[in-house]
Structures are given as structure tokens and as C-alpha cells.
Design a protein around this nucleic acid. Structure first.
Length: 420
RNA sequence: GCGGGCGUCGCCAAGUGGUUAAGGCAGCGGCUUGUGGCGCCGCUAUUCGGGGGUUCGAAUCCCCUCGCUCGCCCCA
């Protein structure tokens, strides 16, 4: 029979790794909470139309990466490939925006049908924030600084923040014209991919990895040259405020993000330790998306962090401290002892202690071995002799020497008092 | 969708045509019928991702297929 296994690109998170994930999630929650941002949870499955309209029909995400299928009612459904669209949909549907501006965060799985590689899975996880109803450059910087501080607090090293301004839709239209004109003049010198993209998405050519095209583009018109005075001023203010906060950044005029809804500030935080998928956090302003999805005219900015990519970076550092050294391991053997041990275990847990009970009936030596391996600090040993007198033997597994001076014979109430 | 690399026990891994497929880690059992960390002993792949072929003989050669992985595209 064929071995049953997870689908391609779908990863299990094993007990070994969930410690790190919990640590990261805790840190994320703390950072959002302390910034006054509220969590929002939306369905994993949405009408396909939502993503087609928000992300853009011509993007790769919509064009070839979505998990789309028909449900039993013949509705076209899609597993969410990103978080922003769902959140905007939810804010509109639930009238959140009529209650004022919203500061929201989310965390959860996303799905993209791509070939997996380092730092990329078909089911992956993102955490992100969305500020809906904020237009001032301050909100851009607030959003960026939260991401920056979060990543640094997690211990991610060697990060680079790159920013650019895509201007408003008029700026971009103007730029698109001049860029397309220039590209067509140099058509034969472009690589094949870039040639194909001139019609569909010329801005993305700026982001090419083809070195010949890259060199050629040094003479291409630049996006920031097409920006209106107003857009330029806005961008300058963002940069000024980042400097004021001492958040180091690089201006990257070639940074163009892949989803259609971005405008003005676009940014990326990358790491040089990730292989080719180097983006840890990406985001930007999307001032027209809410309206395009049928909501009130609402300025917005948001970003998303790829959780797996953080895990890769943090895995290299190791050593997330757990609370194992506070653990108590219950060694027990014999019928009366086993019953008594269950009671002791629960009594200790009701005092909020971390208690693991051995359920094996193996020899004491075996159980002690497991106790040691489990990382517990204390072993409580109960045999029938102890059970008869309602006593336990308490042993410190982390005392340095081989002597047994740490062993104590205690009545149950004495034990509980000791751990209170 | 397109390239490159790889598939031998739960994990790491030797073996590259010749009778029984090293070793290490983990696991289990014992030395020690009630006391761990060290040590010692024992057990754990009729089988080399799957299928077909070549051969007296294949984990080793050939073909097909599946899977993993890295990269392209694209993105977090």
C-alpha cells in the first residue's frame, strides 16, 4: 500500500518545533497588544472574486497560485493567499469603518499553489497588521516601526529595511507610460521574461534578477521622478520620521511590490540569511482598496510577516528557554501507588504546577530515566509503601552530585506546602 | 509550469554487480524484582521510494514513475 503522507508543500509542526512557534506567537501578541491593536480572525475560505478583485487579475498570485475550487453549491471558493483582502472585506461587511478608524492584526495560515523551496510552502503562515482609516505619514511610520521592533525583539539578526514610494494612481499611470515607452526602445536588450512583462506588468520589470537587464535599467526612468510634488513631500515626511526614530532604512527606487493594490509607501524587510526567498516582511499603503471593494473611501496601510521565514532565522540561533526545569515528574509503581499518584498529580496541578505522570508501570529505574530525560527538576516517587502511609519521596534531579541528600520523605500535605 | 541535486531502519549514514545489507543516534529489554544522569550486554531493514528490464547474480547498470530538496517565475 502507498504510504500516506501530507500533500506537497504542507508541513507538520512537530513537538520539537512548537515551542519556538509558541514563543514567536506570544511575542507577536505582546507587541500588537501594547500598541493598542486588536486581533481579527476571518475565514480561511473566501469567494474567489474577493482576491481576483483586490490582488489583481494580472498578478501571479491570482493568475496561477490560488487554491480555487467549486463547492457543492457551485460557488467558486478560494483558500486565502494573503490576509489583507479578507480583512478589508470583513471591515466593510461588519460596518467596522463606521465606528471609526481600525487598527487590526491577524495571524494564521495562507495558501499558495507554488513549487515549494527554502522559505516557501503551499500552506504557510503570516502575521500582519492593517491600519484602516489612517492617511497621515505618521501611520506609515507607526506601522513600520512596529514591524521593525517586533522582528528585533524576536532576535532576528541582520535585517535591512527598504522603502520606496509608488505615488498615487496618477503618478503610477504617468510613470507606466514613460517606462513602457523607454522599455520598448530597448526591447531587444531585455531578457525574455521582461519582454513578456511589458504589457502585463511593466513595473515589475524593475525588480528583475536578470543581471544584464539590471544593468540596462540603470538608465531607465525612475518612479520617484514621476511623483507629484505632493507625493514626494509625503514620502519625504515618512523618511524624515523614520530617521527621527533611528530606524535605519535604504531608499530603493526599484522596489515595486507584486500586488496591484499598493500605493505611496511600499517597503520590505529582508534578511541575508534566507537563501533566495529573502523577504521577511512586506507591506505598504493601499489607499484605494477599501473603496474598490465597495466600502467607504478609506486610506490604509498594512504589512505581513512570513512566520516560517522567522522560524528559519531563529532556528539558527536556537536556545528558546522553556519551563522544563520547573517540571515535576511522577514516578509510580504498584496498584495502590498508581492510584495515589494520580491524586498527587492532580493536587499539584491545582496548585498550578507543571506535573507529568508516568503511565507505564515500568521499573523504577526506567521511570527515573525518563524523568531525567524529560528535563524535569523534581521527581516524586511513589511505591505501595508510600501510598499506604500517604507519603511520597521527593527527589531533586538537578542536584549536581550523586549523593541522595536531596531525597525527602514527605507526607502529602507537607509536599503540597513545599510547592505552594 | 521549467531547470539542477537527492531517495538504504524513526533520524544520520557505509556500501557503486557476487553467498548473511556496516556503524552511530533514538527506542525497547537487561546488568540493578523500589531509585536517574556514566558504563556494559542484547534486540530493532528477508530489504535498499515504487514498477519494469539487463544479468547466472542488482541497493549497486538501464527505462519509467513517485516523492523530497534547491533554484527560476513570484512572493511573506
Amino acid at each position: 500500500m502507498e504510504k500516506l503522507q501530507a500533500l506537497r508543500g504542507m508541513a507538520d509542526l512537530l513537538p520539537e518545533q512548537t515551542n519556538l512557534w509558541q514563543h514567536i506567537e506570544l511575542c507577536i501578541r505582546r507587541h500588537f497588544t501594547r500598541a493598542g491593536i486588536s486581533e481579527i480572525r476571518t475565514p480561511l475560505l473566501e469567494p474567489t472574486e474577493l482576491f481576483a478583485r483586490s490582488i489583481g487579475e494580472n498578478t501571479d498570485v491570482v493568475g496561477k497560485e490560488m487554491y480555487t475550487f467549486k463547492d457543492k453549491g457551485e460557488r467558486s471558493c478560494t483558500l486565502r493567499p494573503e490576509g489583507t483582502a479578507s480583512i478589508v472585506r470583513s471591515a466593510i461587511q461588519n460596518g467596522l469603518l463606521s465606528q471609526g478608524a481600525q487598527k487590526l492584526w491577524y495571524c494564521g495560515p495562507m495558501f499558495r499553489y507554488e513549487r515549494p523551496q527554502a522559505g516557501r510552502l503551499r500552506q504557510f503562515h503570516q502575521t500582519g497588521l492593517e491600519f484602516l482609516g489612517f492617511s497621515h505619514p505618521r501611520s506609515d511610520v507607526e506601522a513600520i516601526s512596529i514591524a521593525w521592533d517586533l522582528l528585533n525583539d524576536l532576535g532576528v539578526q541582520n535585517l535591512t529595511l527598504q522603502i520606496n514610494s509608488l505615488g498615487d494612481s496618477e503618478d503610477r499611470f504617468r510613470f507606466r507610460e514613460s517606462l513602457t515607452k523607454w522599455l520598448n526602445e530597448h526591447l531587444e536588450k531585455l531578457d525574455k521574461d521582461s519582454q513578456d512583462r511589458i504589457e502585463k506588468n511593466p513595473l515589475r520589470i524593475l525588480d528583475t534578477k536578470d543581471s544584464a537587464t539590471k544593468a540596462l535599467l540603470k538608465n531607465a526612468p525612475l518612479l520617484n521622478e514621476s511623483l507629484s510634488t505632493k507625493s514626494k513631500q509625503r514620502f519625504n515626511e515618512v523618511k524624515y520620521l523614520l530617521e527621527e526614530l533611528h530606524i535605519p532604512f535604504q531608499f530603493n527606487p526599484l522596489l515595486v511590490r507584486g500586488l496591484d493594490y499598493y500605493s505611496h509607501t511600499a517597503f520590505e524587510i529582508t534578511s541575508d540569511q534566507l537563501g533566495s526567498q529573502s523577504t521577511v516582511c512586506g507591506g505598504g499603503r493601499y489607499d484605494s482598496l477599501v473603496k474598490e471593494l465597495g466600502g467607504p473611501d478609506t486610506n490604509a496601510i498594512g504589512w505581513a510577516i512570513g512566520m516560517e521565514r522567522i522560524v528559519i532565522l531563529l532556528d539558527k540561533l536556537k536556545s528558546i528557554d522553556t519551563h522544563k526545569e520547573q517540571k515535576i515528574y511522577l514516578v509510580n509503581k504498584g496498584k495502590e501507588a498508581e492510584y495515589f499518584a494520580l491524586k498527587v498529580t492532580r493536587a499539584l496541578r491545582l496548585l498550578d504546577k507543571i506535573v507529568e505522570i508516568d503511565l507505564s508501570q515500568a521499573a523504577f529505574s526506567k521511570q527515573l530515566k525518563r524523568a531525567d530525560k524529560s528535563g524535569a527538576k523534581w521527581a516524586i516517587i511513589i511505591g505501595d509503601n508510600e501510598a499506604k502511609e500517604e507519603k511520597v519521596v521527593l527527589k531533586n534531579l538537578r542536584s549536581a552530585t550523586e549523593d541522595s541528600t536531596s531525597e525527602k520523605n514527605l507526607a502529602l500535605n507537607e509536599l503540597l506546602k513545599l510547592f505552594t
